[in-house]
Simulated scan of single mutants.
Amino acid sequence: MSIVIPSRLEAERLVHEWTASESLRKHMLAVECAMRAYARHLGEDEELWGVTGLIHDFDYERYPNASQAADVEHPAEGVRHLRTLGWPESVCEAVLGHADYCGVPRETTMAKALFAVDELSGLITACALVKPSRAVADVDVAGVRKKMKDKAFARGVNRDDIVQGAEALGVPLDEHIQRVLSAMQAHAGPLGLAGLTPPSSTTFSGDA
């Protein structure tokens, strides 16, 4: 039985309906880019992996982990909504699996990839935004590794998740970082990471 994959437009509508924060929307876009890159690398379904990455945090703004019960917060509430809409169970389980506290094992490669790229995309974004240029093009693997060691930098990023995620995929950490970084660099504009616009030069006319 073939899986009916929701369209990217459907996923995008969900994101816009549930999420007002521009930075959170861009995070979901970054994860989508990384998931598509991994799908292409592994010969998997790019559309399925892409929409999974795009909607993985769509409920976070409404249910920002304020409750002590994992079943009444992000991402459980979002997954309940996805199921009412008939989204594939593989997507629902991957979204649940990207949050350890849900206790849902990451059994598919797609679920493992989502967990692996989620925190890393956030770290790469932070690395870009502290560059003088604010451009992800100026970020490299060595710089990301250096920032990983700096616990005071981007405190909200779980470094262990990045390392464990790469291990679960069977990918060397540097290769993992490079793949996600390259995906984000290729879509720097929509992610808001193309850098500062240089001041326009003054044009003189006539004799100097």
Rank of each mutant, 00 (worst) to 15 (best):
P75Q: 12
D57Q: 07
A30M: 01
R40L: 14
L9A: 15
G86T: 03
R13V: 08
W49C: 06
R36V: 14
G43S: 02
D59H: 10
R83I: 02
S7D: 03
H16T: 12
R8N: 08
E44D: 15
L85Y: 07
L82M: 14
R8G: 05
E12W: 14
H41R: 15
A34E: 02
S67L: 04
T19H: 01
D71H: 11
A37D: 10
H16G: 07
S23M: 06
L42W: 12
R36P: 04
K26F: 00
H41F: 14
S7P: 08
E61F: 11
L42A: 14
A37M: 07
E22Y: 01
E22A: 12
W49R: 03
E10N: 07
H16I: 11
S67N: 07
Y38T: 02
L24I: 12
V72T: 11
A70W: 15
S23K: 07
E47T: 14
R83N: 00
P88F: 12
A20I: 01
A37R: 10
E89Q: 12
F58E: 02
V51A: 05
C33P: 03
T19C: 15
K26P: 00
L42F: 15
R83K: 13
E61Y: 11
E61H: 07
V31P: 02
H16A: 15
A34H: 03
L85R: 14
E46T: 15
G53M: 12
A39G: 09
D45W: 06
A66F: 09
P88E: 08
A11V: 04
G53D: 07
R25F: 04
R40H: 15
R83D: 01
G78D: 08
S90Y: 00
H56Q: 13
H27P: 02
E17I: 03
L14W: 10
R40E: 15
A20Q: 14
A34N: 10
V79N: 02
P88G: 10
D71M: 01
L9W: 01
S7V: 11
R83C: 01
R36Q: 14
L85D: 10
E32S: 03
S67E: 12
G78I: 04
A11T: 06
H27W: 01
H41A: 15
H74L: 07
E32A: 04
T52K: 08
G43N: 13
L24D: 05
E17N: 12
G50D: 06
P64A: 06
L9E: 15
R36F: 09
I55K: 05
L85V: 03
E73L: 10
A66E: 14
H41G: 00
W18R: 09
A37Q: 07
G78M: 08
Y63H: 15
A76E: 00
D45G: 01
V72D: 13
M35P: 02
T52H: 05
D59Y: 05
Y38R: 08
H41E: 14
K26A: 11
G78F: 12
T19I: 10
L82E: 05
Q68S: 06
L54G: 04
E47C: 03
A39Q: 05
R8K: 14
V51P: 08
A34L: 04
A39M: 09
R8T: 09
L85E: 04
C33R: 13
T52A: 10
E89V: 02
W87G: 00
T19W: 02
P64T: 01
H56R: 09
T19E: 00
H56W: 09
L9I: 03
G43L: 08
V79S: 00
M35V: 05
S23A: 11
M35A: 05
R8M: 08
Y60V: 00
V79H: 00
